[in-house]
Structure formats: structure tokens, C-alpha cells
Design a protein around this nucleic acid. Sequence first.
DNA 1: TGTACATCAGTGAACGCGCGTTCACTGATGTAC
DNA 2: TGTACATCAGTGAACGCGCGTTCACTGATGTAC
Lengths: 227, 227
Amino acid sequence: VSSPGPVRTGYHHGDLRNALIHAAAELAQSGGPDSVTIRAAARAVGVTPTAAYRHFTGHEDLLGAAKECCLERMSEAMDTELARLPESGDRVRRALRRLAALGRGYLAFVAAEPGLFRTAFAQGLPLVSPVESAWEAGPFLKVIEVLDELMAAGFLPAERRPMAEVSVWSAVHGLAMLHLDGPLGDLDDESRQRAIERTFEVIVAGLGCRGLPDDLHTELIEIVGGR
Amino acid sequence: VSSPGPVRTGYHHGDLRNALIHAAAELAQSGGPDSVTIRAAARAVGVTPTAAYRHFTGHEDLLGAAKECCLERMSEAMDTELARLPESGDRVRRALRRLAALGRGYLAFVAAEPGLFRTAFAQGLPLVSPVESAWEAGPFLKVIEVLDELMAAGFLPAERRPMAEVSVWSAVHGLAMLHLDGPLGDLDDESRQRAIERTFEVIVAGLGCRGLPDDLHTELIEIVGGR
DNA sequence: TGTACATCAGTGAACGCGCGTTCACTGATGTAC
DNA sequence: TGTACATCAGTGAACGCGCGTTCACTGATGTAC
């Protein structure tokens, strides 16, 4: 769960657990969850497969740790997008900007690191830590916060607040999946971009009642798709 | 791609290709795409693995056929929901009803047949037939038709029509995926239901400009979640 | 400060598994004459 | 109508692979006295 860790110094490794997780994440990066095996991770670290069993109960345990690691990477990618945002404007504007940046971060991560994304959402036993905490500390929590802010600022009516985070996340997650494995994978870049923009527009229009001023709309679209 | 096919009658099978596809689909049903192997399919049919190579170029070919088969099953499930709909009301009402029924069919299929769903969207080489036709003959086409109708009937403004099908499908697909493998899997049935309803509301509100009359809203929510 | 010994963290060999795929083959079918 | 023969659709044995996991082991570490 931390950085690469020292290369081994003699018989004992020193930080084998973290080294294995790091190796597992690199395997996930290049080949997705199916590439994460105890043998391959041990090989990458330069250690016998058996040694891994000192630190993990088995394959499932290692994969779970890798999953958690991928989720963290994803969370970081979204934070990066958030950090680039200007602070100007009223609360609604700032919150909508953040919503757009989250979507952008999510989709950019999927495009840049499909293997990590697939692993983060791999089927099977959940994460090592209690489920809720892992998810709520990650990407999902950020969406919840932004929607709370949108409600507090008066953009999102209170009666529409419940479950709104699910709608938002579903839309962006579905967009990502359909691009990765579904029929949207064949779209050219331009169409892909327009699909993302339209989905963002539909979601924002579906959340708030009122329309957006033109300049705000333009700014948001640029955040969600631009650069 | 057709029905079970006759049980073998002697040395020659008669319809081995279809029998293998059927077996592959059953494997997919119970264990997802990873369970679809040439050996297992041959075993199920009662034939040597080698025999499969008379009808498929290899594992990937069989899996592709299974994928196509799963997509068809999904399409049928959605058609079933469409067929149960009343025909009363104006064009907008009928089209929105159909939109709700498609979402319902999609999500019900995912819940009832997760293995088939996973296989339909399995990663890897596309389908046997040309990509577009397979998808556009399937679930996606139905969404496109309904949205065209919503535009023609005046509910969906023309300038919001492009890519709207992607937004709609992304939302429902994301909902399905997050329930299957994501953090939404832990929701109780009641919350799950509300999440689906809210997502439908957000999408409909995001597509059309105007609000829905109360009775229509109620009817649609019942279609999307009810029974 | 030195030493015996428990504990920890690795090694190396081996197991059984199911897989995709290939080979030379044989049984069944159908067609030309 | 019968027969030789090409063709088709299977069989059976075998290959090599990478995997998860277990076993008895050994090298390194640290702690009690």
C-alpha cells in the first residue's frame, strides 16, 4: 500500500509484503486482474512463491490488496483534477466545477490505466478493509460531498438529493465500461468526446431544475472534456 | 445460436457446432466468461475437445459465439418487457413507458443472469459478426428507437438528441455494474429500488425540459421498479 | 559482553489441476461410375 | 444396383504451460541469561 520499497538486501527482504503488493499492482496495470498471480508477483520481486504465503493467506488475499491499491490510485487521479480547479465564482459554480472535474478524472483514469481500473472493479471477494470504508474513502465519497454542496448551495432540490450520487456515478461508470468493453469502444475520439459532454449535460440538467447560464455551461464542458 | 439441438445419434453428432454454443452459454450462465472453455463445452456435449476444432478455430472463436448468444438472450429479455406494456396514451407517454420498460428489462436481466450479462460484455475480441450489426440489432437499437420517438413526439428537444442514447445506456449499464461488482452490491433491496428509480428520474428530467404530470411519473416509476 | 536458543522469513522441490492445442488415427457418409 | 474411394467428423493420446498450494528445510535475527 506504500511506495516501491527497498530492493532486497540479502536473505531477508525487509518489506516483502509491500513489495508484493506493488508488483501485483504493476501486473494489474499491464494485464488487468487476471494477470495478478502469486507466482508472477513473487517472480517480479525476485522471491520464491512460497515466501508470499508469509504475508498473504493466498491468492485472493493478494488480489484484494491489489484491488485496494488500484482504488487508491484512482482516487488520487481524481484529486489531481480537483486540485487544478480555480476557486472563483459562487458556491454552485464551484460545486459544478468539481462535479465536472470528478467525471473528467474518472474517465481519464480509465483511458490511461484500463488495467488498474478493471482491477479496482474486479469481481469477487471485496477488499481487505471493511467494505464501506474502502469505498467511502475513495471516489464515491467525493461525489457525495459535491452533491451535498450542490444541495446546500440551492442547485439540487432537497427532495432530489437522496440517491443522486448513485445516478451520477452510474452514468460515468457506465460510460467508462461501454468504452472499455462495449460498443462505444469503436467510436472515434470526436464522437467519444461528444458522448461524454452530452452525458454530463443530461446529468446536470437532471439534477438541477433550472438551466445553466451560457458561460457556466461552456466552462463546465471544457473541464469535463477539454485540454 | 439456435436451440439445444438433438442429442447425438451415433458417431456423428449432427449439429455439434450449435450444441457446443449452447453448452458454452450454459457454462457462461453459471460461471461467467471464464468458465467458457473448449474442454468444458466438449465435456458437456459428450465429445472430445478435439472435435470442437472442426467447428471453431479455437477458444476465442467459441467464446465469441457464446458472447453473441448472451447478447441475444438479453435482447429477448428486453423485448419481453416491451411486450407487456399497454398501448394507451399519447406518443410521449408510450415512448417514456418503453424507456422505462427497457431499463427494467436490462436490470432484471442482470440480476437474474449475471453470468450471461458478464459474458455479453466480456473483454476481448468483439463478436463474430460485424461489430455494429451485432450491437445495433441488440439492446442498443431499442434505446435508439425510443429516443427517436421521444424527439419526434416533442419531448426531447432536437438539439439534445445527439448522443442521448449513450447517456441513457451508460446510466443503466453503470447501475448494473455497480450493483454486480461495485459498492452498490451491499445495498438492501429497498435502497436498490430507490437508486434505480432516482436514476430513471434524473435521466428523464435531463432529457426533456419540462416536468412530468404526476400520474405519468407514478406510472413510469412503477414500470421501472415495480411488480 | 558472550552465547544458547527460539523465532522469523525465506528456499527448493514437488503435488495435482485444467487448460489450449496438435498429432496421427478411424469410423461414417456420400458420390462417381 | 453395387462398389471404390474421397471426404467429412469424430477419437485418443500426448505436449507444454502456468497456476495455487504444501512440505520439510535452512539461513538470519533477536532475545534471555
